[in-house]
Amino acid sequence: NRMHLVCPMSVSPYVDPCKSSHEIWEEFSMSFTPAVREVVEFAKKIPGFRDLSQHDQVSLLKAGTFEVLVVRFASLFDVKDRTVTFLSGKKYSVEALRSMGAGELLNSMFEFSEKLSALQLSEEEMSLFTAVVLVSADRSGIENVNSVEALQENLIRALRSLIMKNHSNEAATFTKLLLKLPDLRSLNNMHSEELLAFKVH
């Protein structure tokens, strides 16, 4: 009945059975905190993000951090080898993670990573796409929807012109990229459910 933590933001999927759930959570929190801080530093550099109200900056980050991390760490999911690399650098096979309780979310993460890497985005395009993911006016709790919407539109326009410049099949690439947004929402929902189940457990 041993517990596992099948999240690559953790050092290892193996949980020490002698540790209390509080200790396990504290350790996990320590391991993902640097990545969350990096997302905040990234957000601060998005032109116009710091002009939003403090409340809306926090709301966007609270709602979107997971999705940004999925994009940034998509390469941890090796579609070819069917492995996931954890923070320790150690790789675990899909089969091993499945035997530890990983389910539908794992499959969906692989599917997403595969589709994203197929678009062959440059670092600049990936960065702009990540900004679009974060600045979404339809997140819950936004107080000034118009400001967030205006910033999001600017970012989408910039992303579009960048894609148009760099890709031969630009319209298809841009459409496929925008279709990743609902995919990320769906992953976010699945992840929230798993986290909640973990906390309850």
Partner: peptide
């Protein structure tokens, strides 16, 4: 989702990183 984030301590990490609080700088 936001409610989950609050429960997970994410909001605290985000606020500290956004504000660059003195506590954060000491770390």
């Amino acid at each position: 989702l936001s409610e989950h984030a609050s429960n997970l301590g994410l909001e605290d990490i985000i606020r500290k990183a956004l504000m660059g609080s003195s506590e954060e700088r000491q770390e």
